[in-house]
Design a protein around this nucleic acid. Structure first.
Lengths: 139, 139
DNA sequence: TCATATGATCATGAGTATATGATGAATAAA
DNA sequence: TTTATTCATCATATACTCATGATCATATGA
């Protein structure tokens, strides 16, 4: 459903939202806790920073923190820099335009499901996912 | 949502279901009508044949036809050889197992949507999509 | 100023998805 | 048996995703 990169991004944002209350969280710590490659993650987090989702500080005590409160951070903002989760994904048969008027064969039956997926990413916030449950092994 | 290859497969099956009533449809014709690369499509259709979705005949007058009646051919059978559309796709955060008991952070909120996607592919048949509408440009 | 910690970036590579052109193999019809 | 038609396959190429190791740049504190 999500690319590996977007999945890393989402898992990281959840971790930072949880651990980052007392200060920035470092790439090394995140990479180790999530079990993902350090340098690859560094680039991914840099993209999130450029997208305004995270902010970074260098030097001792540095790391990443949320640039937006978790309650106002919607999943689409975390995922968008990596995966297209919006309109482009909606036509099952890959049409450039696929609307009620210019519908592909799957449009009518797929519509509700495709819109549910898009709505999930657009409406759900990071804070809402955090409430789902706590525990160290959860990510 | 679907890989390019799975999209080709689905579009081809829809075309064959429509055009193939009077006999096999050739790769050249399909490739031209759908605007997809001929040899790549040939390999893709071969995979569908091995999966029991299509049957092929060689020689003059040959081509591909459905190996299963459209009304009994569910989309999951067309897509499965290329994309994982089932359980593996269900955990947003990429966990190997993610159930109600061992839930990731996104599980509770994602569950209904993820299941709706899986159900769409499992329940919808090719014949149902064909009924959506007719017309040459539709695929 | 210097040593250290940290993010940022570079160079490179493996693996996979997608695509192309040439050739092989089977079948039907003349 | 020959020829034409058609699917099957091979060899290769390109682009992208994911990943690794080395190095650079910046900030803190001694």
């Amino acid at each position: 459903m999500l690319s590996q990169t977007a999945e890393y991004a989402l898992r990281t944002v959840l971790l930072i939202a949880e651990r980052g209350v007392a200060g920035p969280v470092g790439v090394d710590q995140i990479a180790q806790e999530l079990g993902v490659p350090r340098n690859y993650l560094s680039k991914t987090l840099h993209q999130l920073a450029r997208a305004g989702v995270l902010s970074s500080t260098r030097g001792p005590g540095g790391g990443f923190r949320l640039a937006v409160p978790a309650a106002r951070l919607r999943l689409v903002r975390v995922i968008e820099p990596f995966d297209d989760v919006g309109a482009g994904r909606r036509c099952l048969l890959g049409r450039p335009v696929c609307s009620d008027r210019t519908a592909c064969r799957a449009h009518g039956r797929w519509k509700a499901t495709g819109e549910a997926v898009a709505a999930f990413f657009q409406d759900t916030t990071v804070a809402e996912l955090l409430r789902e449950g706590a525990g160290a092994a959860r990510a």
